[in-house]
């Protein structure tokens, strides 16, 4: 464990808490893409199957359970409890266009052609693009509430911090994993445009509004 990874994990946890609190306090999931949340739930359930086979640390097990549970809880809140507030008219991204290519790519490019390894690889590929329906929703409505922006910033920072973690591990532990690194790079790049708007607008107290 190094500081970049710890900060990355905490940032990820913060993003999830912000989102759940926003939905719970406002009793509404307006402006949030249910499609992205479904993708994240698929990402965590397929990646953390090793919970049943490998024990790494109490921290690792605890975080994995939290990520699976909170992603399922978010989907439940959006599609069941606060279904009436869900913005389904704008949330029209076709997630099969992300799921299927991620799965095919995982079958083609992986470290080992075994079920658990392919599912792990699939989850890494899918995570890198899972935010696209959310970014699509924001671009369709042309704006995002501040709280949604904070959520996106925390979520984007998480993989960005992991990039520094991988650079650190490359030098300190002589370890690297190209699948995770390339996917993490793609994931972080997808947030760049949003990061720019967040820093130039949201941090100055303005609402995130896209140019017409």
């Amino acid at each position: 464990m190094n500081i970049f990874r710890l900060l990355g994990d905490l940032s990820h946890l913060l993003a999830i808490i912000i989102l759940l609190l926003k939905i719970w306090k406002t009793r509404s999931c307006a402006g949030i893409s249910g499609k992205s949340q479904i993708l994240f739930a698929i990402v965590y359930t397929t990646r953390y199957l090793d919970l049943f086979t490998t024990f790494i640390s109490a921290y690792n097990t605890f975080m994995k359970i939290i990520f699976i549970a909170t992603s399922l809880a978010t989907v439940f809140l959006m599609y069941v409890k606060f279904k009436a507030t869900y913005d389904h008219n704008h949330d029209t991204f076709r997630i099969e266009f992300l799921i299927l290519p991620a799965f095919v790519l995982a079958l083609l490019i992986n470290h080992e052609l075994s079920p658990v390894e392919v599912l792990w690889t699939f989850s890494i590929y899918l995570e890198s693009v899972a935010i696209l329906p959310q970014l699509f929703l924001v671009s369709k409505t042309g704006e995002a509430e501040s709280i949604t922006s904070h959520y996106l910033f925390a979520l984007g920072s998480y993989r960005g911090l992991y990039l520094f973690n991988w650079i650190y591990r490359y030098y300190a532990e002589d370890h690297y994993d190209l699948i995770a690194i390339v996917a993490g790079l793609v994931q972080t790049v997808l947030y760049c445009d949003f990061f720019y708007l967040y820093i130039t607008k949201v941090l100055k107290g303005k609402k995130l509004q896209l140019p017409a």
């Binding site: 090793d50 790494i56 690792n60 792990w120 973690n165 532990e173 370890h175 995770a180």
Partner: peptide
């Protein structure tokens, strides 16, 4: 071994 090293990440 990649299995023990990378799988410790989240």
């Amino acid at each position: 071994n990649r299995y023990t090293i990378v799988k410790d990440e989240l």
